[in-house]
Simulated assay, not measured.
Amino acid sequence: MTKTLTTLGFDADDTLWHNERFFRITQERFADLLSDFTPQDHLEARLLEAEKRNNGHYGFGVKGFVLSMIETAIEVTQGRVPACVISELMAAGRDMLEHPIELLPGVEDTIRELSKSHSLILVTKGDLLDQERKLAQSGLGEMFNWVEIVSHKTPDIYTRVFSQHGDGAARALMVGNSLRSDVLPALAAGSWGVHVPHGMTWALEHAEPPVGAARFAEIESLDFLPDLVRNIG
């Protein structure tokens, strides 16, 4: 009997390991450093605007985030931001890039189990060196058949990845914490899309769930993924 699903794609940050919470910690540090110049809610709004502008230039990840913080600090202080604040922000970025990886509950067992029956592909966006570092530290690398680090996740990206490293999008499933990046474009490519909500999701990743979509599912954690994959066939 031919399996319906042969290829499983996984997001990395906040799907396999913690990520967003370190951005939140740094953003709180950023607010403290600029508290004499602007209220926290105004600073957060300005930072988000900078990130929207800069993603196309710097890409996703820590380095782009730090540059957006520095740009925002210059803007809200009208160029009067102290050099020591810029130095603190750069140090915060280095701390983020050196932070040990913490796997989410159930991840290792789930990945190990599914690697025995399916081809696994890691599809993540962000800084190349940082994502490679996190995967190496995670201890999961040997269980993936292929790794794709991309600048954006689009239907075309999923179509290409699942065609080159699997049996096509129709026989693939993509799982992740972001509806906007992991689920909706995978569904548009013809794959299954599985949402695993995370307690912290970056504002730019928010999207409405595709209610009624035949190949959409939502699970509480990756612990439930093996049963879902078996039910699909």
Rank of each mutant, 00 (worst) to 15 (best):
M1I: 11
T2K: 15
L5P: 08
T6R: 13
L8V: 15
D11K: 05
A12H: 06
N19W: 13
N19V: 04
R24K: 05
I25T: 11
T26L: 03
Q27M: 11
E28R: 10
R29Q: 13
L33K: 02
L34D: 00
L34T: 00
D36S: 13
D36K: 07
Q40K: 14
H42E: 15
H42N: 07
L43Y: 01
R46N: 08
R46S: 11
R46C: 07
L47Y: 02
L48D: 02
E51W: 04
R53H: 13
R53S: 12
N55T: 11
V62K: 04
V62S: 10
K63E: 13
F65R: 01
V66N: 02
L67S: 10
M69V: 04
I70S: 01
V76E: 02
T77G: 04
R80W: 00
C84R: 11
V85M: 01
E88W: 01
E88H: 11
A91M: 04
A92R: 01
R94V: 14
R94N: 08
D95H: 02
D95T: 11
D95G: 02
M96R: 05
M96L: 15
L97G: 10
E98H: 09
E98Q: 15
H99F: 12
P100L: 04
L104Q: 02
P105Q: 04
G106V: 00
G106S: 10
E108F: 14
D109E: 15
I111H: 06
E113I: 08
S115M: 03
K116Q: 15
S117L: 08
I121S: 06
T124N: 07
L128K: 08
Q131K: 08
Q131P: 05
E132C: 05
K134M: 07
K134Q: 13
L135G: 09
A136N: 09
F144L: 04
V150M: 01
K153D: 08
T154P: 03
T154W: 01
Y158C: 09
F162I: 07
S163K: 06
Q164Y: 02
H165V: 05
A169M: 05
A170Q: 14
L173V: 15
M174F: 11
M174C: 12
S178H: 11
R180Q: 14
D182W: 10
L184A: 04
A186L: 08
A188V: 01
A188G: 06
G190K: 02
G190E: 01
G193Q: 08
G193W: 05
T201C: 14
A203D: 15
H206V: 09
E208S: 15
A213Y: 05
A214D: 12
R215G: 09
E220L: 04
L222F: 07
D223F: 14
F224D: 14
L225P: 05
D227H: 12
N231T: 13
G233I: 05
